[in-house]
């Protein structure tokens, strides 16, 4: 236990025991071990995935931070790196993968596309940021972010984990957390949470009678 912070609980330890005993809080020891063994899911979407691979390789080597075990299965991962453009065709799978990850789980939005659509935001099948569907802990800017930026993102996430308290985290509740409803592919991407709004707006459009031409929606 080289971390100095662990030894600051405020109790006096007799000098003869100092090399064997450390007093700390449950939060601290728990967060300390968790932040140093984040297992990312092996899951790449687009260009950023290549930089993610580059970060995993020998030059940058993120196993220095205890995360060399990339898991192809969401059941064994606790960090999802959304590395690339999220499309409407892909978002149902991403939400499903997120739901399958055991808690505690974290999400990093890597790059401009995952954070907010990036250069492809105006595209018709691009989701303008993965945070429209799943909660994101750390955003990393860049197109694609350099490995250094990704490492900085990891360190930021570690700092965030360090500050969490077992008392206030959303997991470990009496009842299991609600899964995020999986979006459905219709004429366009449909978020089940927004069905009422879609119905309302479309109904209003139909009432106005300005039936848009094929493939053209209302533009204000």
């Amino acid at each position: 236990m080289g971390d100095e912070n662990l030894n600051s609980a405020g109790y006096e330890i007799p000098p003869e025991m100092q090399s064997q005993v450390a007093i700390t809080t449950l939060d601290k020891i728990y967060n300390w071990s968790r932040k140093n063994s984040l297992w990312p899911m092996m899951f790449g979407l687009a260009c950023c995935a290549i930089e993610m691979i580059g970060t995993a390789a020998s030059r940058f080597d993120f196993s220095r931070f205890g995360m060399e075990v990339m898991r192809p299965s969401p059941r064994q991962a606790d960090l999802m790196i959304v590395s690339g453009t999220v499309t409407k065709k892909m978002i149902p799978q991403i939400v499903r993968l997120y739901n399958q990850m055991p808690e505690p789980r974290y999400v990093i939005a890597m790059g401009a596309c995952a954070s907010g659509g990036g250069p492809f935001k105006e595209g018709y099948t691009v989701v303008a940021g993965v945070d429209k569907f799943i909660p994101v802990d750390v955003y990393i800017p860049g197109c694609p972010p350099t490995p250094q930026a990704l490492l900085h993102g990891f360190i930021t996430l570690m700092k965030k984990i360090e500050k969490q308290s077992l008392r206030s985290v959303p997991w470990y509740q009496k009842t299991p957390g609600e899964p995020i409803p999986i979006p459905i592919l219709g004429p366009d991407l449909m978020d089940p949470r927004k069905f009422d709004q879609i119905k309302q707006v479309c109904g209003k459009l139909a009432e106005q009678g300005n039936e848009p031409a094929e493939g053209e929606a209302a533009h204000e």
Partner: peptide
């Protein structure tokens, strides 16, 4: 109108849609 990157044909009812 949907405050998102989506558009739907007029009169569309998501509940009647079979994916």
């Amino acid at each position: 109108p949907f405050h998102d990157n989506v558009q739907f044909p007029a009169g569309f009812d998501p509940e009647l849609w079979s994916p």
